[in-house]
Amino acid sequence: MGFGGISIWNLLIILAIIVLLFGTKKLRGIGTDLGSAIKGFRNSIKDEDQKDDAELKADSKPVQLAEPAKPSAEPTTSNQPTTEKDKV
């Protein structure tokens, strides 16, 4: 017994019938077309992966921060006295 009750001889007979129906040239063309379609699909997947990797690398570049603000000479807190009367 082979695949689900189909023996190897049954598969060979089915293959022979397919070859007789379609011919070897047509089957070769179908195989070539199918192979090129699979190859194109793999290439497009690989290109998308490379594109995604390039985008991730571009996004992960370190960001250069601006220089920190220098403190001003005058205090900015509200606890400081503003008039002569408040200073005493």
Rank of each mutant, 00 (worst) to 15 (best):
M1P: 03
P71E: 14
K61I: 02
A66C: 02
D33H: 05
P68H: 06
S60P: 00
D33N: 12
N10C: 00
Q50M: 10
K85I: 06
P81M: 07
S7Q: 01
L34S: 05
F41S: 06
T24S: 11
D53W: 01
P75Y: 03
A66V: 08
T24F: 10
K39P: 00
I6D: 07
I45A: 02
G40C: 01
A66W: 06
I8C: 01
K46P: 00
R28V: 14
I17W: 06
I13P: 00
A69E: 15
F3A: 05
P71K: 10
S72F: 10
T82V: 11
S78D: 15
I45N: 01
K46L: 04
A69D: 13
I17R: 07
S7W: 01
S60F: 08
K39S: 03
I18L: 12
A54C: 10
E55I: 09
K87N: 04
K85T: 08
A73P: 02
L27Y: 10
G5C: 02
I38L: 09
A73C: 04
G23V: 10
I13V: 11
T77V: 13
I8Q: 05
K87R: 14
Q64I: 12
L21E: 14
P71V: 14
T76M: 12
P81V: 06
V19Y: 08
S7L: 00
G31K: 05
K87S: 09
G35L: 03
I6T: 04
R28A: 15
V19H: 10
L34D: 00
E74V: 14
D59H: 09
K25D: 15
L56R: 15
W9S: 00
L34G: 01
K46G: 00
N79W: 13
S72T: 15
A37M: 06
F41E: 02
P71D: 15
Q80V: 13
E74C: 07
T32L: 09
T32F: 10
F3T: 04
V63T: 14
L12K: 05
I30H: 06
K87F: 12
L15E: 04
L34Y: 05
I8R: 05
I45Y: 01
E74N: 02
S78G: 11
A16D: 13
N79F: 07
K57Q: 15
K25W: 13
Q64N: 02
M1W: 12
L65K: 13
Q80F: 15
E74F: 10
S36L: 08
T83F: 04
K26V: 07
G4E: 08
T83Y: 08
K26R: 05
G29F: 14
P81C: 04
D49I: 10
K25E: 15
Q64A: 10
L15A: 04
N10S: 01
A37Y: 06
M1S: 10
I14E: 08
S72N: 11
K51W: 08
F41H: 06
R28L: 14
I18F: 09
L27P: 06
D53R: 01
N43E: 03
K26D: 03
M1H: 11
G5R: 02
L21C: 12
E67P: 07
D49Y: 07
L15W: 08
S72L: 14
M1T: 11
L65F: 11
I38T: 05
Q64R: 08
G31W: 11
D33L: 11
S44Q: 07
L56V: 13
R42K: 03
A58L: 03
Q50D: 12
K70A: 15
L11G: 00
I45H: 01
P75E: 10
G35N: 01
D53M: 02
A37F: 09
T76N: 12
R28I: 14
